[in-house]
């Protein structure tokens, strides 16, 4: 019964949709899938089981979580006004808006990717300490003011998105990128010899489309923020008169 193996996928979809505790949903999905596939709970080297597969893979993937080591430096800088400084710097540029800044961030991310520079998570290295306070500062938004909450979350989401757009659609501009290597080796296994530079070349139209669509979406963000601001200003004026 092949389809029964998809029960884990079903558990994930239902669990996430019901907003259950995600870590627990993932582990339950893994255990059920393993049991359905006939894996023992604890296995041996010859026949891997569920708990040891979980443990082995968890240990092998520690690099994804290595960013915790950079949190003390970022946190201490924030305590002494890193975000305030980033706000001040961006406010000197009168043309700066959150949307324009995110587009610049996406293009900067392309440049970083095209040069083959890897920084671990851009969300940690650039997003939280620099881009987010700058974007909030450009819009004069205060994350601690309840009235700003919706706009603040909108700007936060855009900061995460700009990093992902720039990373996903820009990294293969570098012919030595992991994604290019995956294309080359996968097709190599199927008998096609591919020049990695040709794969990088085909990334150009993809990166260009992502920049155009990103620009439209970030322009839309600016419009949304400007509307929210003018509504807020109006109600403030009415309250005064």
């Amino acid at each position: 019964m092949e389809l029964l193996k998809l029960v884990g996928v079903l558990i994930i979809i239902v669990g996430f949709a019901l907003r259950l505790r995600v870590t627990a949903v993932v582990v339950v999905a893994g255990i059920v899938t393993g049991l359905v596939a006939g894996m023992p709970f604890v296995g041996t080297d010859a026949a891997p089981g569920i708990v040891d597969t979980l443990g082995r893979s968890f240990a092998n993937q520690r690099i994804i979580t290595l960013f915790v080591l950079s949190l003390p430096a970022i946190g201490l800088s924030e305590r002494f006004g890193l975000q305030d400084r980033a706000r001040e710097l961006i406010q000197r540029i009168r043309a700066a808006t959150a949307g324009r800044l995110q587009l610049v961030f996406q293009l900067l991310r392309y440049a970083i990717g095209a040069l083959g520079i890897r920084l671990g998570s851009g969300h940690v290295a650039l997003g939280r300490p620099l881009i987010l306070p700058m974007a909030l500062g450009a819009e004069r938004l205060d994350p601690e003011r309840p009235d700003d909450a919706d706009a603040v979350d909108d700007v936060k989401a855009s900061t995460g998105a700009a990093e992902n757009y720039g990373n996903f659609f820009g990294q293969n501009l570098f012919f030595g990128a992991a994604g290019v290597a995956l294309v080359v080796t996968t097709l190599g296994d199927m008998g096609y010899t591919i020049d990695p530079r040709r794969v990088a070349l085909w990334t150009i139209p993809v990166a260009t489309s992502a920049a155009i669509i990103g620009a439209v979406q970030f322009w839309w963000l600016d419009r949304r923020l400007a509307r929210a601001r003018s509504t807020a200003d109006q109600s403030a004026t009415e309250a005064e008169s």
Binding site: K5, V22, T23, L54, S57, R62, T65, V68
Partner: peptide, 25 residues
């Protein structure tokens, strides 16, 4: 606790691979 989610999902991927979920899809 979300901090462990990426590693957990990678581990789930390993269980999925061992069970052959990708081939079915």
């Amino acid at each position: 606790a979300i901090v462990i989610l990426p590693q957990l999902l990678a581990a789930l991927g390993a269980v999925f691979r061992a069970a052959g979920v990708g081939d079915v899809i």
